[in-house]
Structure formats: C-alpha cells, structure tokens
C-alpha cells in the first residue's frame, strides 16, 4: 500500500479510504501511478512471451559464438571494412568484443528485435482483439500508446545492455583485459573504458528508440503484426543499404540508420561530440515525427478488429 500514499493524487481526496471507493471509482485516474501500473503490466506481458525471450536468447548466444569464433581464429587476421579497428584491438583487450558485437548485431539482429516488439505492440493487440477491450476499459488511446512506446524502448535498452554485458563477460574470459587503448591511440584506465562502453550502449539504445518510433507508427496502421514487423525490418535494411551507396550521399544524414554506428566517436579522445549530437538529434527527430504520426493515427482510427 505504500506506493498509494507516495504518489500525490491530482485533486480530490486520496483513494485510500474504503468508504470513498465509489467516488474514487468515478474519478478519472491519478496520473503517473496508474500509468506505471499499466507499464508494469505491459512489461510483464512483453518479457514473459516466449517469442521475446527467444529473441533475447539469440542476443546472448550470438556474442558467445562470436567471442569463441574470434578466439579460435586469429583475431587480427579477421575482416576489413569499418570493423577492422575493433578486430585489431580485440587481440589486446577483451572489452572490444562488446563494441564488435554491438557493431555486428546492429546490422540486422538488433533491428530485428526492435521490429518484432514494436511491430507487435499495437498491431498484435488489434489482431488478437484485446485492443478493443483495453480501449473500452478505457485505457485511453494516447495513454496506451505512450505505455506501448515506453515498453518497446525499455525492451530495446534491455537488448543492448544484454549484448554489451554478455560480450563483455565473454571478452574477459577469452581475451586479456586491462587499460583500454582508444581508436585515437590514447590509453585510458579500464574503468574509463567500461564507462565509455556504457555510453556506447545507451547511444545504440537511443538509435533503437528512433527505430521503435517508426515501428510504432507502422504498427498502428495494421492489425497484422507480422506485416508490421516485416515492413519495419525492410525499412531498416533499405536504409542501411542506401547509406552504403555513395551516390545517395545527399540523403545519408537523413536516413534513420545513418548515425547508428557513430558511437565510435565515444572511443576517441577527445570525444567527437558533434557527430554524437547529430546522431542523437537525428534519433530525436525520428521519435518526434513518427511518434506524432502514431499518435495522430491511433487516436483517430476506427477500431474494427
């Protein structure tokens, strides 16, 4: 009951007393506390679904496989391209397995995870028919949408943290660990390196939050979750492909995926804040624009499922 007393109800008497149950019932809710209750319910539903747990399982297995694979082969012989510097560093420091894992999973697996939970968020409820029951409770359309989005963002954050943590552990087991030599050549203490890893993870999660907003908007357009999931994934991959075609250079900064890998700015001394800010601004713009689209669509659409 302590939470009930903690939150300050907006206007009117607190709902605690049993005698006023009816009055409390008729009074539309007290903001944050009931919102958090719905979010808790949403998260329980999300994290208890076998499909979502399987996705998280994949995010555990892949860094493990990656670490073992790189340990068995000679790491510095591996790959060219944008990851080359990570590969080169890995031999000297296991922390770089985390950066490597995030980089590799960002191309397909992490977007897939976001696509699944974001695409399912509204379309899944519509397809199941539970949406009409949530709305007649009434959960409130804008309120439900905000809860849905928050839950997807939390799931994305959890996914990124999981990748970082698992690959950090694997890196520590399989490779030497110690002071981190940054991409700019400076060496920083291990604690500083780990802090930078945390920032990198949060930056990647912010990028995923941008994709989640696109996914949410797509999810409000259909009652077929699988269609929404496919559409989000196609969009993410198309954006990545376009980002790699030099002729499209003009549109590159506007692509939703363009800044995803810019987290390497955090691995330089001094940190390249300009690129980072551009990235965060790009994610924020996608969240605002597609969040608005989702809101406009969801609060005005007929629910006929």
């Amino acid at each position: 009951m302590s939470t009930a007393e903690l939150s300050a109800p907006r206007g009117g008497a607190p709902a605690a007393a049993d005698g006023t149950a009816l009055a409390a019932h008729a009074r539309p809710g007290n903001g944050l506390r009931t919102w958090l209750r719905l979010l808790g319910s949403e998260l329980r539903l999300m994290f208890r679904r076998w499909r979502n747990l399987a996705l998280l399982g994949v995010l555990v297995v892949l860094p493990v496989v990656l670490g073992i694979g790189l340990r068995v082969s000679t790491p510095d012989g591996g790959g060219g391209g944008p990851n080359a510097s990570f590969f080169a560093q890995l031999a000297g420091n296991g922390v770089f397995l985390s950066f490597l894992a995030l980089t590799i999973l960002l191309t397909l697996v992490l977007p897939l995870v976001i696509a699944v939970v974001a695409g399912d968020s509204v379309a899944g409820e519509a397809g199941l028919g539970t949406l009409r029951y949530l709305l007649t409770v009434p959960a409130g359309r804008a309120r439900l949408l905000s809860v849905k989005y928050t839950a997807v963002v939390i799931f994305g954050l959890a996914a990124c943290l999981l990748v970082s943590a698992v690959s950090l552990i694997m890196g520590a087991i399989l490779f030497p660990i110690g002071p981190v030599t940054l991409l700019s050549g400076t060496t920083v203490p291990l604690a500083d390196g780990l802090l930078r890893l945390l920032y990198v993870t949060l930056y990647v999660a912010a990028g995923m939050a941008g994709l989640a907003a696109i996914g949410l908007a797509i999810s409000t357009l259909t009652e077929h979750a699988i269609g929404a999931i496919a559409a989000i994934l196609v969009l993410a991959v198309a954006s990545e492909v376009a980002d790699n075609v030099a002729q499209f250079a003009v549109i590159h900064p506007y692509l939703p995926t363009h800044f995803w890998l810019s987290f390497d700015s955090l691995l330089r001394a001094p940190v390249d804040t300009t690129t980072l800010l551009h990235g965060l601004l790009s994610f924020a713009a996608y969240i605002v624009v597609f969040g608005s689209i989702a809101w406009a669509r969801f609060t005005s659409a007929d629910v006929t499922s």
Binding site: A26, P28, T34, L38, V137
Partner: peptide
C-alpha cells in the same frame, strides 16, 4: 491494470 480508476490494492 489498464483501468486508471481501479484500485490496485
């Protein structure tokens, strides 16, 4: 849980 008028207690 979706009902903002419901008392969780």
């Amino acid at each position: 849980a979706a009902d903002r008028t419901a008392d969780p207690g």
